[in-house]
Write a protein that binds this DNA or RNA. Structure first.
Length: 851
RNA sequence: GGGCGCUUAGCUCAGCUGGCUAGAGCACCUCGUUUACACCGAGGGGGUCGGGGGUUCGAAUCCCUCAGCGCCCACCA
């Protein structure tokens, strides 16, 4: 049972986790109260990064805390197939072998990626265990599990039936490298320096010309009109006329539309419905045809021979050159504008006209906004809710079709003889189906990953009939990073409300990012990524957890700080040594019967244990993880180790030491699960129980009045330490005369202040202590005390200044009149206390400066 | 162009609905082999709370304004 001097986490952690997992403590236990968290599923194919350590830490602390409260806790782990993300990783993998996605059918590709992901999936499950997450592995869910796919389909079907799904030829954000469309939210915009080209469009009747300004001259072959603002006097006479498109001589109408900004460019705009979102809308309003001149590979098509098959970039160059040589180019201006890029490969996103599935978001958003405004979901921090509402209010329809293989096939089939005839059917393994003699062809596309993951809360719990759903929905908490507030949290709320008629979770906690040590963003390409596993190996899982939550509040980005991890390790070691000491003192069979506080230190530590535990609980109820840890840290380190254990050495109360140790291990367990459980398993008097399965117990109460006596001891001890330090003296004795309180606590004072002795004498003189009302003095004479007199003078100055300040407050009539009585009487008390202390200080100075 | 947020000790950050002499950790300085722990113990120095104005008896905290920084959204042809 003798424990090593230093806690070495990697000797114990794996065994402890295995013990937990085997015992089944992580499965929800019976209780009237439920607490449920479904973990955001990380990409099954990728290693867990430091950000997920934060998620794991926060969710696990909450889960373990609620378990300690005796609630039925569900912490459900999962993994995401991460459709496009994973496919693009796999494509890179293929590229290394000199292959590409075009070498395989969709089915082949799907199967290959499935195998690829299966290889890597167990990695991250192992990593979650290393992080100590107390999740219920029996409920582990993958986003391609049947129960998830089934619910993606039923949600889609419901929307289909209720008219929220529509198929339409719309402009989508298309990445020509990856060959798929994206939702608006997946496009990243960057400001880029480019040009604004001014091009002459002559009127057909020869009566003049219009000059248009454009950033994309190569799309002019797709122009189907030129628009001006109806209120623009310069162009009123042009409206209704026809211009000739340079380089092709096709004729275009001049029309009026409010969207045109008179101040921008020339106030005349070429309209290209097939390649610009604004123009598309103008086209819709004016029933213009759309001419697609850029294909899905980013090449020019349906354009004059000279430009055919050129890339957008080359096409642009040639068009500009030709316009210039044919004198259609009026001028070229430098122009800064923001350009959409593929968030994965950086390719410029082409707005292309594609036939895709869209969700009409208006009704969904409306309901979500109402729920948010009604405060049905509490946000940490509150400001994220405001942002979310703003986002929902400007929401566009959602394109859920993706042209990739790695995803859930869209259960829709098209009549081969009638393109407008689409039906819903779940036989997605068939490419062709026959119904009523008609032949239907499956839509080759898959769902946007976010479509299925938006059903995560109710799908994982198996809506609508399972026990889990009835018990754990809505979830207690959704904890996640700020980057997926819009793509995920917002959609879970919308779909949750739509499908279950309930909010999917009652609280949302948004954590900030873990940045690199210098505060910049972690990124693989920069090479400043911190991998959690080596850190766990070196410092321990608890140390990393504590280091990562320490000083971090909701939604605030902060750098990873190795020193905080070291602090965490030190804290674990402190706990370890506290246990080591107590276990040595109490032995294998401590007498635990009739355990009660005896010394004033006993009362004091019990009172503080109660108070600290209450405060920590209150913080955790509000997800103030760092504050809670801070309180735990100081209680254990300062109160327990530095004061109580030291004080107890003069009169150890074995039963109480055991009780305090157990109570502390319980409170600390959510923060440092491994070390607390490891210690628990070393307790000779505990057999076979798991700390992870314990609950907060009724603590033995201390007497508050007796506790106050210990703070008196602390004051005396602190002053003696200060004096001894200031005077650099040793072997000091403290004297007093006939004082029961001092007599009773002489041993404690002697030990804590490292005195030679504490002695009761009839009378005598020396240096009086000023911090206590008890008459005690040290055997230090005037000649040795000069340094301390300087300290006393400083105290006197400080004390006088304080009194002056407080008195000024009281002489201020409006303060006395306006401030609450409580505050005023508090001030009076402060003055009286300060004056008492000042008197003692002054007297002491006098004693040492006179005669 | 909008929205959200930040600026407090050398560093990283706490400071709730205004009221104890503005806090913590790390770093720094001094001392210490007191057998639980040097991943330790004791003591200490260090801040005109970004600038300016206002409300108030009282402002780090509320309001206005200026400056700097960050993030998000947006259909600037």
């Amino acid at each position: 049972m003798s424990l090593p001097k230093v806690y070495e986490p990697n000797l114990y952690e794996d065994d402890i986790y295995a013990l937990w997992e085997k015992s089944g403590v992580f499965a929800p236990q019976d209780s009237k109260n439920y607490y449920s968290v479904v973990m955001p599923p990380p990409n099954a194919n990728a290693d867990l990064h430091i950000g997920y350590e934060l998620t794991a830490a926060l969710e696990d602390i909450s889960a373990r805390y609620h378990r300690l409260k005796g609630e039925s806790v569900l912490l459900l782990p999962g993994a995401d197939h991460a459709g496009f993300e994973t496919q693009s990783v796999y494509e890179k993998h293929l590229a290394k072998e000199g292959k590409s996605r075009f070498d395989f059918s969709r089915e082949q590709l799907y199967q290959q990626i499935w195998d690829f992901v299966a290889l890597n999936r167990s990695n991250f499950e192992q990593q979650l265990r290393k992080m100590g997450v107390s999740c219920d592995w029996t409920r582990f869910t993958f986003t391609l599990d049947d129960k998830i796919v089934k619910r993606a389909y039923s949600t889609f079907h419901k929307m289909w039936d209720e008219g929220l799904i529509y198929r339409g030829e719309r402009l989508v954000n298309f990445c020509t490298f990856h060959g798929t469309a994206f939702a608006d939210i997946e496009v990243v915009y960057r400001d880029e320096a480019s040009y604004l080209w001014y091009i002459r469009y002559p009127l057909v009747d020869g009566s003049g010309e219009l000059t248009v300004a454009t950033t994309r001259p190569e799309t002019m072959f797709g122009d189907t009109a030129v628009a001006v603002n109806p209120n623009d006097d310069r162009y009123k006479s042009f409206i209704g006329k026809t211009v000739k498109l340079p380089l092709t001589n096709r004729e275009l109408p001049v029309l009026a539309d409010e969207f045109v900004d008179m101040k921008f460019g020339t106030g005349a705009v070429k309209i290209t419905p097939a390649h610009d979102p604004n123009d598309f809308e103008v086209g819709q309003r004016h029933s213009l045809p759309s001419i697609t001149v850029i294909n899905h590979e980013g090449k020019l098509i349906d354009v004059p021979e000279a430009y055919r098959d050129l890339s957008v970039e080359d096409g642009r160059k040639k068009v500009v050159a030709d316009l210039e040589s044919q004198t259609f180019l009026v001028k070229t201006e430098d122009h800064m504008h923001s350009v959409g890029h593929c968030y994965k490969c950086g390719t410029v996103i082409q707005p292309l006209l594609r036939d895709q599935w869209f969700i009409d978001m208006q009704p969904l958003a409306k309901r979500a906004i109402k729920a948010l405004k009604d405060d049905q979901i509490k946000f940490y921090p509150e400001s994220k809710k405001v942002q979310l509402i703003a986002y929902l209010e400007g929401l566009h329809d959602w394109n859920i079709s993706r042209q990739i293989a790695w995803g859930i096939p869209i259960p829709a089939f098209q009549n081969v003889d009638d393109a407008s005839d689409w039906i819903y059917d779940e036989r997605v393994t068939e490419e062709i189906i026959e119904i009523d003699g008609k032949t239907y062809h499956r839509d080759p596309d898959t769902f946007d990953t976010w479509f299925s993951s938006s059903s995560w809360p109710y799908a994982t719990l198996e809506h609508p009939d399972s026990d889990d759903f009835k018990r754990f929905y809505p979830l207690s908490l959704m904890e996640t990073g700020g980057e997926i507030l819009y793509p995920w949290v917002s959609r879970m709320i919308m779909l949750g409300l739509y499908v279950t008629d309930e909010i999917p979770f009652k609280e949302v906690y948004i954590h900030g990012y873990v940045m690199a040590e210098d505060g910049s963003k972690m990124s693989k390409s920069v090479g400043n990524v911190v991998n959690p596993l080596p850190v766990i190996e070196q410092y321990g899982s608890d140390a990393l957890r504590l280091g990562i939550i320490n000083g971090r509040s909701a939604a605030v980005n902060r750098g990873y700080d190795q020193r905080k991890v070291e602090d965490g390790r030190n804290f674990c070691n402190k706990l370890w040594n506290i246990a080591r000491y107590i276990e040595t003192v109490v032995g294998e069979n401590p007498n635990r019967e009739d355990t009660k506080p005896i010394t004033i230190a006993d009362h004091w530590i019990l009172t503080n244990l109660q108070r600290s535990t209450d405060k920590i609980k209150a913080d955790l109820e509000e997800y103030k993880f760092s504050d809670a840890y801070d309180k735990l840290y100081h209680f254990i380190w300062d109160d327990l180790a530095d004061w109580y254990i030291e004080a107890s050495k003069t009169a150890p109360n074995h039963g109480l030491l055991c009780h305090i140790l157990e109570s502390v291990l319980i409170v600390a367990h959510p923060f440092a699960p491994f070390v607390t459980e490891t210690i628990w398993q070393t307790l000779a008097w505990e057999n076979d129980s798991l700390l992870a399965g314990k609950q907060f117990a009724q603590t033995i109460k201390g007497d508050i009045k007796i506790s106050a006596d210990f703070t008196e001891i602390q004051a005396i001890v602190s002053e003696i330490r200060l004096i001894i330090k200031a005077l650099q003296v040793g072997n000091v004795t403290m004297y007093y005369t006939d004082d029961e309180f001092i007599t009773n606590n002489a041993a404690i004072i002697k030990h804590l202040a490292r005195l030679q002795a504490v002695t009761d004498v009839k009378d005598g003189s020396g240096m009086n202590l000023t911090s206590t009302t008890h008459k005690v003095w040290l055997d230090i004479d005037k000649s040795r005390a000069q340094a301390y007199v300087i300290e006393l003078e400083a105290q006197k100055t400080r004390q006088s200044a304080l009194i002056a300040q407080l008195e000024a407050r009281l002489t201020n009539k409006s303060y006395v009149d306006n401030a609450p009585h409580k505050v005023v009487s508090q001030t009076k008390q402060q003055i009286s206390d300060a004056k008492d202390q000042l008197a003692v200080i002054v007297a002491e100075i006098k004693r040492f400066t006179n005669n």
